[in-house]
Design a protein around this nucleic acid. Structure first.
Lengths: 145, 145
DNA sequence: TCCCCAATGTTGGGAACACCAACACTACGC
DNA sequence: GCGTAGTGTTGGTGTTCCCAACATTGGGGA
């Protein structure tokens, strides 16, 4: 593989965005085998952890735009992983609920995703992995007050 | 800001891809003010560091698909930052050369990008920045043998 | 020498993610 | 009661990354 320009390879922004490209490919390959994509996992995970929620809340929690939540929930309903019902206490709001099939799909995707983490961090020791995770968390926190 | 699911927030893959989103926004905001985008910087940097090159070589060095190099070089030629001439030694190949204006644009973008790095890593000490960069480099190297 | 294969530039298309504007409607606080 | 904020939805955009096909050229092996 040809080497990239040094002024690029040294910048943290390059390292992170390039790494993100490879990660997205790994994750996408795993998920498409399960007939899903990233947005689905985020939404299923939020429903599992916080219980039924409106689409707007899902969007805020998962960092997904309201309009993209619509499409993702459509697909999840289609697959039987989620139910969408009008919120009885609120005329406009929807109530999205995890189904048993959705919980099973979430477990499947979780396994796949854990394999990706191991694959990804393979060159690092357990201590270095923890350090990396901690530092990334501190940098990311700067963007989410 | 609502908190994302914990199973997500703990995964390095999530930290990196989310961080990449914020970084891309920072970089895009800086670059669009200069009338450019990411691909342009990569190509200008490669030309500055390695000298004139074919489009295929630029693509390999900058991790950009051949077909996307075509469009980016078109735009750079349009802006006067780059010259594209047929390679005299090779019928099919092109020879892309950095112009004086392109070198100036590269310096501008370098300044902007350095500001982004500082902005990005602001919460970390100099030592932590070096550690993060080193660990990221080791993980990324796994994907580029 | 001749032929096949690799490389090159180009066109055209697609997927995923992130984002924005507008609309109709509802809930809530002042 | 009324305006404002919140909600779901439609439709569209931009960036990055990736793929397939094509015509053409260069180079290497039979």
């Amino acid at each position: 593989m040809d080497e990239p320009p040094g002024r690029l390879a040294r910048k943290p922004s390059w390292l992170i965005t390039q790494l993100a490209v490879h990660i997205r490919r790994l994750v996408a390959d795993s998920f498409t085998a399960a007939g899903a994509r990233g947005y689905h996992y985020r939404i299923l995970a939020a429903l599992d952890e916080f219980g039924p929620a409106s689409q707007a809340e899902l969007g805020r929690r998962c960092r997904v735009d309201r309009s993209d939540v619509v499409a993702a929930v459509n697909e999840l309903v289609e697959a039987g992983h989620v139910d969408r019902t009008p919120d009885p206490d609120h005329g406009r709001r929807n109530r999205v609920t995890l189904t048993a099939g959705g919980a099973a799909q979430l477990r499947r995707m979780d396994t796949l995703l854990d394999q990706v983490q191991d694959d990804l961090l393979e060159p690092l020791s357990a201590e270095d992995r923890a350090t990396l995770t901690r530092l990334l968390g501190r940098v990311l926190a700067r963007f989410e007050p």
